[in-house]
């Protein structure tokens, strides 16, 4: 039977000086002197457990203190002086800024290279177009000359009467011209007609091709241009 004042030994709770002070053992059984042996033995066992626990805790704390002291002596890890923290932040921000600058520079270089290639292509397309145009004109010229020569030969063979049906549909005012002049004009008219015919048809097909290119270009640009 426990005295009401005997500390209840529960796990985790710690023996306090106050509890020790207020321990009251029951009297020994009749015919025996002193305290109840059972109670005293139990209590001593309890005190022993507490002491072991305390020594263990103390050792752990001593280790912790040593570890912290060693750290403090080394001075790098752990809590940093405010000044060091500032430099650290400045370094990190500088690195981030340099990374950003690098990305911006790369993007700029890439755009420049793309634009440069586009310009070269543009120049190639333009010079190609100029070449074609010159070819077109030359072709028209060649054909027109041939037709003009043919017209002159034809007119010469026929030696038409003045004022009659004229090869090139000359204005009436030309009726009174000398033959060679009339022939020259007929040749010019035939030349110009054929020239403009050939030229127009070349130009038409070329412009149609250009319009198709422009439409494709517009479509691809609209899908790529950021706004």
């Amino acid at each position: 039977m426990n005295s009401p004042n005997l500390p209840v030994v529960s796990e985790g709770a710690r023996l306090t000086p106050g509890e020790l002070h207020s321990v009251v053992f029951a009297r020994a059984a009749l015919g025996r002197r002193g305290y109840d042996e059972e109670q005293v033995r139990n209590f001593l066992a309890y005190v022993e457990r507490e002491l072991v626990q305390i020594f263990n805790d103390q050792a752990v704390l001593a280790d912790e203190v040593n570890r912290l002291r060693a750290q403090a002596a080394k001075g790098t890890r752990g809590v940093m002086a405010p000044e060091d923290a500032h430099f650290q932040a400045v370094r990190i921000l500088s690195q981030a800024q340099q990374t950003a600058d690098l990305y911006v520079a790369d993007a700029e270089r890439y755009t420049r290279e793309l634009a440069h290639e586009a310009r070269l292509q543009r120049e190639a397309i333009l010079s190609d177009a100029k070449g074609r145009a010159e070819q077109m004109l030359e072709d028209a010229h060649r054909k027109a000359v041939a037709v003009a020569e043919a017209a002159v030969r034809h007119a010469g063979q026929q030696s038409p009467p003045p004022g009659a049906a004229r090869a090139g549909g000359m204005p009436d005012g030309a009726g009174g011209m000398p033959d060679d002049e009339r022939l020259a004009l007929q040749r010019e008219v035939a030349y110009l007609r054929t020239y403009s015919d050939v030229y127009r048809s070349h130009l038409r097909s070329y412009l149609e091709a250009l319009l198709r290119n422009v439409a494709e270009w517009e479509a691809s640009e609209q899908s790529s241009l950021p706004r």
Binding site: L126, A129, K130, A133, E134, L137, E138, H141, V145, A148, E149, A184, R187, E188, Y191, Y195
Partner: peptide, 22 residues
């Protein structure tokens, strides 16, 4: 001549002159 000049100025300057004077 650039392309636009060729278009505006008639026969190409590089073409051999035909028999006529035009």
């Amino acid at each position: 001549h650039g392309f636009s000049t060729v278009l505006q100025s008639g026969p190409p300057p590089g073409a051999p002159p035909a028999s006529g004077s035009w």
